[in-house]
């Protein structure tokens, strides 16, 4: 069987896979990193978004072998070892940007890529357009958009902490 070597959340792994093994299957079934979800399995819903070499991709539409040699970050790799949440995670919590939580890992990973690509800041419209690849069936998106706007301020150093949701 072919082997794939990749770094996931800073740790190197060499795993035997089939040609058809998807990156998300490697993450969930071989590495037991089940924070990355599979929603539609047709590259539309975005629940499976992870970062490959710093860019957001749908891990249900990437072969594990295509990620050979790559640096992969999943939702499990965001918080600091002491449990301090990434500003995007913190913002999702503060702004109640989730209800059932199924889409949340993909939303958070997509949002971080979006914010990193826009150091000059993001308008509400840009955030909504930037989330085209992520579906949420419960929140109605409003609080997700607010959370991303707040996290962007912190990630780019314009604010020191995520404001309370009650603002």
């Amino acid at each position: 069987m072919p082997q794939v070597t990749l770094t996931v959340n800073g740790k190197s792994h060499t795993v035997e896979v089939e040609g058809r093994t998807l990156l998300v299957e490697l993450l969930r079934e071989k590495l037991r990193l089940t924070g990355t979800h599979v929603g539609c399995d047709t590259s539309q819903c975005g629940a499976c978004v992870v970062h490959v070499n710093g860019e957001s991709v749908k891990s249900c539409t990437l072969l594990a072998l295509q990620a050979d040699g790559a640096q992969v970050t999943t939702i499990e790799g965001l918080a600091k070892p002491d449990g301090t949440l990434h500003p995007m995670q913190e913002a999702f919590r503060e702004y109640h940007a989730l209800q059932c939580g199924f889409c949340t890992p993909g939303m958070v990973m997509a949002a971080i890529d979006l914010v990193q690509k826009h150091p000059q800041g993001l308008s509400e419209r840009e955030i909504r357009e930037g989330l085209e690849g992520n579906l949420c069936r419960c929140t109605g998106y409003h609080n997700i958009v607010k959370a991303i706007a707040a996290a962007a301020e912190v990630m780019h150093g314009r604010r020191s902490e995520i404001a309370r949701a009650a603002e």
């Binding site: 590259s43 957001s56 997509a110 085209e132 690849g133 992520n134």
Partner: peptide, 9 residues
């Protein structure tokens, strides 16, 4: 085209 994740691949 598509969405950000599709455009990244």
């Amino acid at each position: 085209i598509g969405d950000i994740q599709v455009r990244n691949r």
